[in-house]
Computed example of a mutant assay.
Amino acid sequence: MDVFTSAAELLRHRRPERPVLALRPHAAHRAASWFFANFPGRVLYAAKANDAPEIIQALVDAGISSFDVASLVEIERVARINGAQLYFMNPIKSRGAIARAYRDFGVRSFAFDSDDELDKIVEETGGAGDVDLYLRVACPNTHSLIPLEGKFGVSSADAPALLLRARQIARRLGLTFHVGSQAVVPAAFGEALRQIGQLIVTSGVLVDAIDIGGGFPSRYPHSDPPELASFMDEVVRAADELAVKHNCELMCEPGRALVAEAESVIVRVDARRGNALYVNDGAFGTLFDAAYSGFRFPARLVATTRRRQKPVAEFALYGPTCDSSDHLPGPFVLPACVREGDYIEIGQIGAYGRVLANRFNGFGEYEEAILTDEPMLSMYAGAEEPAVVPLKRA
């Protein structure tokens, strides 16, 4: 893959017909190193967030060896990594997926949130005694931009009976929860951990691990969360209050926080109508969240000719498909002079951008390149990577 210092340098060499996925593996490496240095436990990568081999390799080079996987496809992909430890944390799985994960790929860690799912795991692993079980507990998602509590998770009222049953089966027993994607208030993790602590006391069941899930935020024009250090401070305070703190492993599953900064997309303006720009990627491509999740992404004009960058204006974007829902309201703040043939770099799409892109109308094909400059926005700017990765946390 070609390497350039910036999008501007790339465009000095060629004018791509397709949108370009611009990878910044160094940003993923820096983010993972920060988590290793600051999270007091095991760091898993939520593999669903970005599957680019270069990004995965950067995370592995930083020390990531544990992965949250949600499907057989993700398992097959991650299992190729030497020494990878796989955690099948989708709370509802097919019987065939459970059996193959256990038999063919050596997966020994499974999440569940009901008696039925626990039955499936026991039956499809043949009642094996080497299975680690993680009970997914529902918790409020009031502090996140993308709530996730509606689909998975047992209630606190029903959890004690499931915990007691699983304790008699599991080699290691854990609890897991998710505060929602792009959690913007550190207290979200403290509140959930206190709920978990109360559940442990109420049930009388000791657990070996607590997985606080993902939800750690990245930075966007519409969402400027506190520093990640404040989230870690909240996690440490709440974890220290747990009755099982001395013999219970703490885990997390960041996805967005590790890879959002590690990729941008370079799009071409194919038409301008007032303050609407028609570009060659959109809602059915890497910019799904800009259309359907209310996200705003940073954008900058990468002009191929010298022009004044002031004044600026607010623009909406339309993607290349024939569907009118291929609309990205933004606003995207760009120089008012933007016109057909210009290129725009849209940042922070490393989390879920490429994995949500599809081939509707025959679009969805991309060129790829590596950029070595800084992301447009960062939670880690100025952070120093540790000289030695603490492997015990991987």
Rank of each mutant, 00 (worst) to 15 (best):
A47L: 11
I146G: 02
A238Q: 06
L162C: 08
K93S: 13
I92R: 14
F110N: 06
P147W: 12
N90I: 04
D211Y: 02
A239R: 15
R273N: 09
A97G: 07
E149G: 09
Y380K: 00
L317V: 00
P217G: 13
Q195S: 13
V207D: 03
E314C: 13
P226D: 04
R77C: 04
L277I: 12
K93Y: 14
D208C: 01
I169W: 04
S114C: 03
K48Y: 04
N82E: 15
A70S: 14
M89F: 15
V235Y: 03
M1Q: 02
A257N: 13
E367W: 13
V107K: 05
R171K: 11
A351T: 06
P217D: 14
H178M: 05
A188H: 06
F297P: 15
F177E: 04
S71V: 06
L44C: 14
G255Y: 07
F152Y: 15
F152M: 09
G41P: 12
H246Q: 14
A7F: 07
T125D: 06
Q168N: 07
S218P: 07
G180N: 10
V179A: 12
F88V: 04
P40Y: 08
L228F: 10
N275G: 08
L23Q: 01
F284G: 01
K48R: 11
R359C: 12
G214R: 03
L148Y: 01
F177I: 05
T372G: 03
S203M: 00
D2Y: 01
I81K: 07
R172N: 13
A79Q: 04
Q348H: 00
I370P: 00
P226L: 06
K93Q: 13
S181Q: 02
G294A: 10
L173K: 01
E234T: 10
F231R: 00
R237I: 12
Y352P: 05
I196Q: 02
C322N: 07
F360V: 14
E365H: 12
R306F: 04
N38K: 04
I200R: 00
A238F: 09
C139H: 04
H29W: 04
L148H: 01
L145M: 06
Q198D: 15
A313V: 06
I344V: 15
L391S: 13
A111D: 02
G190H: 06
T286A: 13
F152I: 09
G282M: 05
E227V: 05
L228P: 13
R77Q: 10
Y45A: 10
H143L: 06
R219Y: 05
A243W: 00
A383V: 08
P335K: 08
G129K: 05
G153Y: 09
I344W: 09
A22I: 08
G83P: 08
N90A: 09
V78I: 15
D158V: 10
R42T: 05
T304P: 11
D113N: 10
Q195H: 10
L199G: 03
L162V: 10
I210D: 14
F177Q: 03
A271P: 13
L145P: 05
I92V: 14
V265C: 11
L206C: 02
D104S: 12
S223G: 07
A27N: 00
R194M: 00
Q198T: 11
G190T: 07
